[in-house]
Nucleic acid binder design. Structure first.
Length: 235
DNA sequence: GCGACAG
DNA sequence: ATCTTGTCGC
Protein backbone atom coordinates (compact mmCIF):
# COMPACT_ATOMS: atom_id res chain seq x y z
CA UNK A 1 0.00 0.00 0.00
CA UNK A 2 2.91 2.29 -0.82
CA UNK A 3 0.85 3.94 -3.54
CA UNK A 4 -2.80 4.24 -2.48
CA UNK A 5 -5.49 3.18 -4.94
CA UNK A 6 -8.02 5.74 -3.84
CA UNK A 7 -8.22 9.03 -1.95
CA UNK A 8 -9.80 7.09 0.88
CA UNK A 9 -6.81 4.78 1.16
CA UNK A 10 -4.52 7.78 0.90
CA UNK A 11 -6.16 9.44 3.89
CA UNK A 12 -5.84 6.21 5.86
CA UNK A 13 -2.13 6.10 5.02
CA UNK A 14 -1.69 9.76 5.94
CA UNK A 15 -3.10 9.19 9.39
CA UNK A 16 -0.65 6.37 9.85
CA UNK A 17 2.35 8.37 8.60
CA UNK A 18 1.35 11.45 10.58
CA UNK A 19 2.30 9.60 13.75
CA UNK A 20 5.87 9.33 12.50
CA UNK A 21 6.45 13.04 11.99
CA UNK A 22 9.15 14.33 14.34
CA UNK A 23 9.27 17.95 15.45
CA UNK A 24 12.69 19.11 16.65
CA UNK A 25 15.23 21.79 15.71
CA UNK A 26 16.97 21.45 12.36
CA UNK A 27 20.68 20.63 12.50
CA UNK A 28 22.55 23.66 13.89
CA UNK A 29 25.19 23.30 11.21
CA UNK A 30 24.88 21.52 7.93
CA UNK A 31 26.56 21.49 4.55
CA UNK A 32 23.90 21.02 1.89
CA UNK A 33 20.40 22.33 1.32
CA UNK A 34 18.09 20.65 -1.17
CA UNK A 35 15.06 22.19 -2.91
CA UNK A 36 12.54 20.56 -5.19
CA UNK A 37 9.71 21.35 -7.54
CA UNK A 38 7.58 19.66 -10.17
CA UNK A 39 6.25 20.62 -13.56
CA UNK A 40 3.28 18.98 -15.26
CA UNK A 41 2.44 18.47 -18.91
CA UNK A 42 0.14 16.49 -21.17
CA UNK A 43 0.69 15.49 -24.74
CA UNK A 44 -1.04 17.31 -27.63
CA UNK A 45 -4.41 16.09 -28.87
CA UNK A 46 -4.55 12.50 -30.06
CA UNK A 47 -5.15 9.08 -28.62
CA UNK A 48 -2.89 9.67 -25.64
CA UNK A 49 -3.86 13.30 -25.31
CA UNK A 50 -5.12 12.84 -21.80
CA UNK A 51 -2.02 11.25 -20.39
CA UNK A 52 -0.44 13.45 -17.81
CA UNK A 53 3.21 13.52 -16.92
CA UNK A 54 5.35 15.31 -14.43
CA UNK A 55 8.99 16.27 -14.13
CA UNK A 56 10.50 16.27 -10.66
CA UNK A 57 13.59 18.35 -10.04
CA UNK A 58 15.89 18.48 -7.04
CA UNK A 59 18.65 21.04 -6.73
CA UNK A 60 21.34 20.86 -4.06
CA UNK A 61 23.17 23.93 -2.77
CA UNK A 62 26.02 24.36 -0.36
CA UNK A 63 25.12 26.14 2.86
CA UNK A 64 25.02 28.99 3.58
CA UNK A 65 26.49 30.27 0.32
CA UNK A 66 23.81 28.67 -1.84
CA UNK A 67 26.00 27.70 -4.76
CA UNK A 68 24.51 24.93 -6.88
CA UNK A 69 26.48 21.72 -6.28
CA UNK A 70 24.23 18.95 -7.58
CA UNK A 71 21.04 18.33 -9.46
CA UNK A 72 18.77 15.47 -10.50
CA UNK A 73 15.45 15.08 -12.25
CA UNK A 74 12.94 12.41 -13.17
CA UNK A 75 10.05 12.20 -15.64
CA UNK A 76 7.07 10.07 -14.66
CA UNK A 77 3.42 9.63 -15.45
CA UNK A 78 1.00 11.12 -12.99
CA UNK A 79 -0.87 8.42 -11.14
CA UNK A 80 -2.92 10.26 -8.57
CA UNK A 81 -5.55 13.02 -9.02
CA UNK A 82 -5.07 16.42 -7.47
CA UNK A 83 -7.12 16.62 -4.33
CA UNK A 84 -6.44 19.40 -1.82
CA UNK A 85 -4.84 17.69 1.15
CA UNK A 86 -3.54 14.75 -0.89
CA UNK A 87 -0.96 16.55 -3.01
CA UNK A 88 1.92 14.44 -1.74
CA UNK A 89 0.57 11.30 -3.38
CA UNK A 90 0.96 13.02 -6.73
CA UNK A 91 4.43 14.38 -6.19
CA UNK A 92 6.34 12.14 -3.80
CA UNK A 93 6.82 9.12 -6.13
CA UNK A 94 8.62 11.13 -8.83
CA UNK A 95 10.55 12.99 -6.18
CA UNK A 96 11.89 9.75 -4.69
CA UNK A 97 13.20 8.72 -8.10
CA UNK A 98 14.98 12.04 -8.51
CA UNK A 99 16.39 11.67 -5.00
CA UNK A 100 17.93 8.31 -5.95
CA UNK A 101 19.84 9.96 -8.77
CA UNK A 102 21.51 12.56 -6.58
CA UNK A 103 25.23 12.24 -5.94
CA UNK A 104 25.08 14.59 -2.98
CA UNK A 105 22.24 13.97 -0.57
CA UNK A 106 21.22 17.25 1.10
CA UNK A 107 21.10 17.54 4.90
CA UNK A 108 18.02 19.74 4.87
CA UNK A 109 15.30 19.71 2.23
CA UNK A 110 13.03 22.60 1.21
CA UNK A 111 9.68 21.66 -0.30
CA UNK A 112 7.21 23.65 -2.36
CA UNK A 113 4.14 22.93 -0.22
CA UNK A 114 2.97 22.55 3.37
CA UNK A 115 4.67 20.65 6.16
CA UNK A 116 2.52 20.06 9.22
CA UNK A 117 0.22 22.97 8.32
CA UNK A 118 -2.14 20.39 6.89
CA UNK A 119 -5.59 19.03 7.87
CA UNK A 120 -4.03 15.77 9.08
CA UNK A 121 -0.65 17.21 9.98
CA UNK A 122 1.23 15.69 7.05
CA UNK A 123 1.60 17.87 3.97
CA UNK A 124 4.04 17.24 1.13
CA UNK A 125 7.14 18.26 3.08
CA UNK A 126 6.26 16.10 6.09
CA UNK A 127 5.34 13.13 3.92
CA UNK A 128 8.59 13.23 1.97
CA UNK A 129 10.55 13.78 5.16
CA UNK A 130 9.05 10.77 6.88
CA UNK A 131 9.54 8.50 3.85
CA UNK A 132 13.21 9.43 3.51
CA UNK A 133 13.64 10.17 7.21
CA UNK A 134 15.40 13.46 6.50
CA UNK A 135 14.87 16.99 7.84
CA UNK A 136 12.39 18.85 5.62
CA UNK A 137 10.80 22.29 5.63
CA UNK A 138 7.50 23.22 4.01
CA UNK A 139 7.26 26.55 2.20
CA UNK A 140 3.94 27.08 0.43
CA UNK A 141 2.73 30.01 -1.64
CA UNK A 142 -0.85 29.64 -0.44
CA UNK A 143 -2.67 28.66 2.72
CA UNK A 144 -4.18 25.19 2.94
CA UNK A 145 -5.65 25.35 6.42
CA UNK A 146 -5.37 27.36 9.61
CA UNK A 147 -5.96 30.96 10.57
CA UNK A 148 -3.78 33.94 11.38
CA UNK A 149 -3.81 37.64 12.15
CA UNK A 150 -3.31 40.23 9.48
CA UNK A 151 0.25 40.66 8.41
CA UNK A 152 2.05 44.04 8.08
CA UNK A 153 3.13 44.85 4.53
CA UNK A 154 6.80 45.24 5.43
CA UNK A 155 9.22 42.52 4.43
CA UNK A 156 10.31 40.33 7.31
CA UNK A 157 7.01 40.58 9.18
CA UNK A 158 5.54 37.33 10.43
CA UNK A 159 2.62 35.98 12.42
CA UNK A 160 1.79 32.51 13.75
CA UNK A 161 -0.43 30.19 11.75
CA UNK A 162 -2.88 28.32 13.96
CA UNK A 163 -4.87 25.18 13.28
CA UNK A 164 -7.16 23.49 15.77
CA UNK A 165 -5.87 25.57 18.62
CA UNK A 166 -2.20 25.02 18.09
CA UNK A 167 0.54 26.75 16.11
CA UNK A 168 1.52 24.78 13.03
CA UNK A 169 3.64 27.33 11.23
CA UNK A 170 4.31 30.94 10.38
CA UNK A 171 2.95 33.32 7.76
CA UNK A 172 5.96 35.23 6.52
CA UNK A 173 6.27 38.31 4.31
CA UNK A 174 9.45 37.74 2.32
CA UNK A 175 9.30 41.08 0.47
CA UNK A 176 7.42 44.32 1.06
CA UNK A 177 3.95 44.31 -0.42
CA UNK A 178 3.97 40.77 -1.79
CA UNK A 179 1.73 37.89 -0.79
CA UNK A 180 3.16 36.00 2.19
CA UNK A 181 4.72 32.55 2.36
CA UNK A 182 3.32 29.78 4.56
CA UNK A 183 6.19 28.13 6.39
CA UNK A 184 5.81 24.99 8.49
CA UNK A 185 8.09 22.19 9.67
CA UNK A 186 8.13 19.10 7.50
CA UNK A 187 9.95 16.39 9.46
CA UNK A 188 12.79 16.60 12.00
CA UNK A 189 12.34 20.37 11.99
CA UNK A 190 10.54 22.89 14.17
CA UNK A 191 8.84 26.19 13.48
CA UNK A 192 11.68 28.51 14.50
CA UNK A 193 14.47 26.74 12.66
CA UNK A 194 12.26 26.31 9.59
CA UNK A 195 11.60 30.03 9.40
CA UNK A 196 15.27 30.80 9.89
CA UNK A 197 16.32 28.61 6.99
CA UNK A 198 13.74 30.09 4.65
CA UNK A 199 14.65 33.57 5.77
CA UNK A 200 18.28 33.04 4.83
CA UNK A 201 17.19 31.91 1.38
CA UNK A 202 15.32 35.06 0.45
CA UNK A 203 17.07 36.99 -2.28
CA UNK A 204 15.57 39.60 -4.52
CA UNK A 205 12.24 37.85 -4.97
CA UNK A 206 9.27 36.55 -3.01
CA UNK A 207 10.14 32.88 -3.43
CA UNK A 208 13.25 31.64 -1.59
CA UNK A 209 16.08 31.36 -4.09
CA UNK A 210 16.54 27.56 -3.95
CA UNK A 211 12.85 26.95 -4.64
CA UNK A 212 12.79 29.64 -7.27
CA UNK A 213 15.65 28.03 -9.14
CA UNK A 214 14.14 24.58 -8.78
CA UNK A 215 10.93 25.97 -10.24
CA UNK A 216 12.74 27.47 -13.24
CA UNK A 217 14.62 24.23 -13.85
CA UNK A 218 11.42 22.22 -13.62
CA UNK A 219 9.74 24.53 -16.12
CA UNK A 220 12.66 24.17 -18.53
CA UNK A 221 12.78 20.40 -18.29
CA UNK A 222 9.00 20.15 -18.56
CA UNK A 223 9.06 22.09 -21.82
CA UNK A 224 11.81 19.88 -23.19
CA UNK A 225 10.17 16.65 -22.07
CA UNK A 226 6.92 17.65 -23.71
CA UNK A 227 8.58 18.44 -27.04
CA UNK A 228 10.57 15.23 -26.93
CA UNK A 229 7.65 12.94 -26.18
CA UNK A 230 5.41 14.73 -28.66
CA UNK A 231 7.90 14.19 -31.49
CA UNK A 232 8.28 10.54 -30.52
CA UNK A 233 4.58 9.93 -31.02
CA UNK A 234 4.62 11.54 -34.45
CA UNK A 235 7.24 8.99 -35.55
C1' DG B 1 -26.15 22.73 3.23
C1' DC B 2 -22.35 26.40 2.25
C1' DG B 3 -17.59 27.69 1.60
C1' DA B 4 -12.48 26.48 1.48
C1' DC B 5 -9.26 24.16 -0.93
C1' DA B 6 -0.85 23.30 -1.13
C1' DG B 7 0.53 22.07 -6.52
C1' DA C 1 0.00 22.97 -11.73
C1' DT C 2 -1.37 24.29 -16.88
C1' DC C 3 -3.71 26.80 -20.95
C1' DT C 4 -2.31 32.09 -22.83
C1' DT C 5 -1.35 38.41 -24.73
C1' DG C 6 -1.22 42.14 -23.56
C1' DT C 7 -0.54 45.34 -20.14
C1' DC C 8 -0.24 48.26 -15.73
C1' DG C 9 3.42 49.72 -12.73
C1' DC C 10 8.06 50.44 -10.49
Amino acid sequence: MFVPESPKDAIRLQKELAGKVVICPLPANFRFLGASDLGYFSLPAGDRGKDRFCVAVILVFDWPDLNLVDEASHVASVTFPYVPGLLSFREVPAMLEAWRKLCIKPDVFLCDGQGIAHPRGIGLASHLGVILDIPTVGCAKKRLCGTHDELPLQKGSRTPLFFQGRQVGVVYRSRTGVKPLYISPGHRADIDSSVKVVEKCIGKYRIPEPLRQAHRRAADLTRKAKLFRSSEILC
